[in-house]
Computed example of a mutant assay.
Amino acid sequence: MEIRSEEVLLPVSAVSAFPRPHWLQGRVFGSQYEPTYRSHNVRVAYEDASKIVAREQELAGLDILCDGAQYYEWEAPGFQLEPIFHYIPEMLGGIANYGPPGDGAKYKPFYKGTVNGKVEWVRPIFEGVVYAMQNATDRPFKVAFLGPAQQSIILDDQHYGDGVELAKDIARALNKELHFLQDMGLEAVQLIDVLPPYTQDMWQIECQEILFEGINMIKFWHVCYGSVDGQRDVFDDHAAGMMPLFAASPVDVIHLEFTNKNFSELDAFGNFPADKVLGVGVVDAKNTIVESADQIADRIQRALKIIPPDRLLVAPDCGLGYFSRTTAYAKLRNMGEAAKQVRIGL
């Protein structure tokens, strides 16, 4: 995989979230009509937390860092979906910050933002994230966010009457955001998506094409099986059915959970598109037991039987934000050590 014009064999990255330090509490960024930060003290705390996240990833030997989602309230048990669902809609025009409860018992505590007009980009969304990480590290890093297809189905549409058109306008708005971040110097971006296991309709790819038009960053797509409080949403194997989506996607790296599913879908990736890198989850993001470097190395070797090392990226199954800092960073360090061991043997 090419990173900063150099080929990196068996690159290592994380997915998105890491636990926050105990001294960073509550919401960090304001919504659309507020200042970027809720207070100067919150800004200092957030930027300090970003430095810790960056340093831990550097020590673990990661090739592309992630922002760690330190602006999300991971310490609120059972309610971590609140900021994931609402952070982007609260910053876009055409969406009101209220609406009916979510669908089903798991999502009922989280209201749906109400779409009452044309969705538009009106101000930077992740500017503070990029600025904080640029001041925390000189290594390449990615910003992760919920994608337009996924975002569209968790909103209460009172304007479009057409979910696909809503998703496409979200993609257009986020494309403007990505151009803004690209101008800031952001080198990588990660789409987070729970939708593909449920439907393989190709309009999702049309949204990605709009989202990434003119974007020259490294583009990741994390197909999430769910991990809130260690609970998975997807139990069946859908990888084979998702392969046409993967082939048509404009992204560079597609990442999925493998370890918690005991690599049950691995054989399907014999048909993985040859022009893309596969991110393989080799650390369990739902189990508090810290795997040894040798255990993780065995998982990497298992994946290498299907995907060659120049097209395989090592990562956890999902974000590690729900763990304690001790557990999350121990898993991260052992993952980095495992990748180093496997590289030596190649």
Rank of each mutant, 00 (worst) to 15 (best):
Q158Y: 03
D317Q: 09
I289G: 10
C66L: 05
S16A: 14
L186Y: 04
R232D: 05
G78H: 05
P77H: 03
V12L: 08
L10A: 14
Q70Y: 04
V277A: 01
E90L: 15
A69K: 13
E177V: 00
P250S: 14
G345S: 15
I95P: 02
Q182V: 00
R172E: 00
Y107A: 10
D103G: 07
S13K: 01
F110C: 03
F126H: 10
W121K: 00
L155Y: 09
R4Y: 12
R123P: 03
A248H: 02
P124K: 04
D229C: 06
N175D: 02
E209T: 05
P89H: 09
F85N: 00
N271I: 03
F85E: 00
D284N: 15
E213R: 10
V44P: 01
Q158K: 11
E120R: 02
I205Q: 06
F145G: 00
P89N: 08
Q182G: 09
Y322D: 06
Y111C: 03
L9Y: 08
F126I: 01
L92C: 11
S39R: 11
V143G: 02
F126W: 13
Q70F: 02
P316L: 09
Q32K: 14
L166H: 02
Q32Y: 15
P250D: 12
A268Q: 03
D156H: 14
P273N: 06
R232V: 05
A76V: 09
R27L: 05
I218G: 07
G279C: 04
L166E: 00
E6P: 01
G226P: 04
A144I: 09
G93D: 13
L174D: 00
Y111K: 02
D236E: 11
S264D: 13
Q25F: 01
D162Q: 09
K176W: 02
E34C: 06
Y329K: 05
